[in-house]
Design a binder for these strands. Structure first.
Lengths: 246, 246
DNA sequence: GGGGAGAGATGCCGC
DNA sequence: GCGGCATTTCTCCCC
């Protein structure tokens, strides 16, 4: 497909809100939240029906450049042998420019997909599990409230221990770091202040914790309990079962 | 292209490490860090030369499903009218399965792109600007050190004020929130402890701060100074200039 | 490779 | 829309 035909096809497909996919040797500049410049190379470009556009290099999980949904796009022949695509998103303050030198392929088509993804094994699942069964965390623990709102953010799970101390529990589905400990401390500070109580404990629940974060946690007098998110428990059970079967 | 030809072309292109792009009505399941299920719909799929694969719905800036670089892929006819692609990444513990019902288009090609993106206007640029010119933040401020390491993380800029107090400065390139305040507090706590001093102040520098975060900041006795990242300053100057010209 | 923190983070939900 | 926060975050840098 020559560049003139590319311009016409692109414009038609864009007007019809089709999913446009093409590959080209191109340069990209972006101006908005920052300024970026990407010199000539081969990239695959997706322009979705919602107006979002992504530029993909041959490596990496994320687009090297992009504009969000609701962006307006404009295509023109720049001279005999180049094409320029200007993309504006006024509310976002974003502007992107692609200069196409060579087109490798072009495709566009109507798409139908109303489905949402179903996902399990999130932090919320972990919080639910602990709220339902707080003794997983500590003997004698009783759940009080989930997602308790404070002015300093919300607490994953609030419990009482067997000595009737309030216990603030913060869950992380991956290895806990400094910011998790800071978050826990922030909630405890706030509860101490608003409820005017001092017999309050903090527990950080995660599959693991970094060494330094654990030291900080200990400095603050809080506790770490290692628990995997629900999905990992299932996986573990299955693998143990399989091992048994062999 | 019929499904049998799709399987053959896919396998050939994959072996040659070409950039594969296709669109299909398909189902996707993923098992790894979580478990996901996505039922039948139209998606565009990218398989890059590095082994990473992404599934894109017609909307959104990010892939709905993906596996990272270094993943192994396997394609087969499932029965007369479906194709199954199995993707494994053993080190990551990831497994993905795509069942293709209808193929909309297929393309693959060699790509060349060794270029890295150039980017300006980051938090580091902001930190540099403040280190070079600390009086932007406060009259009489003198820079001491950039990226001072503490056991609780590193400090963006360390200064002394005109009364010889140590001043810890934390920069954010976007509106500051609770976690920025928590971060500042963590560093100050640590400096107080390790250096055994109490005449230490905290300043949070950002273009803006949320109301609640500012209350928390005030509770802790720290200070907020509104400064835009370098690029925004330029932008502001330009827009003021333009206004003057009209 | 782990730890720590930024990112043009993105996306989701709540108010 | 802002706020608060998780994310299969991803990416980079430093130890």
């Amino acid at each position: 497909m020559d560049l003139q035909k590319f311009v016409i096809n692109f414009a038609n497909s864009y007007r019809k809100k089709e999913f446009i996919v093409f590959s080209a040797e191109c340069e990209v500049t972006y101006s908005g939240k920052t300024e970026t410049k990407l010199s000539l190379g081969d990239r695959v470009i997706l322009l979705k029906p919602d107006g979002s556009l992504q530029v993909h290099q041959p490596t990496g999980n994320v687009p090297i450049n992009y504009v969000k949904e609701g962006t307006d796009h404009n295509i023109n022949l720049l001279d005999g042998n180049r094409v320029i695509i200007n993309s504006h998103n006024i509310p976002q303050g974003d502007y992107m420019q692609i200069i196409v030198h060579t087109l490798h392929f072009f495709n566009s088509h109507k798409t139908e997909d109303g489905h949402k993804i179903q996902l399990t094994g999130t932090e919320k699942d972990m919080s639910d599990m602990i709220y339902e069964n707080p003794t997983l965390v500590e003997q004698g623990l009783k759940s009080v409230k989930q997602e308790e709102q404070t002015n300093y953010g919300f607490i994953d799970v609030l419990c009482r221990d067997e000595n009737n101390n309030l216990v603030v529990i913060e869950c992380k589905r991956v290895k806990a770091d400094f910011s998790a400990v800071s978050q826990l401390r922030r909630y405890i500070d706030r509860v101490k202040e608003t409820k005017g109580i001092t017999n309050i404990r903090g527990i950080l629940v995660a599959p693991a914790i970094t060494t330094n974060a654990e030291m900080m946690l200990n400095d603050y007098g809080y506790k770490f309990v290692a628990i995997d998110p629900p999905r990992y428990l299932e996986k573990l059970k299955k693998s143990q079962k399989s091992l048994g079967e062999f």
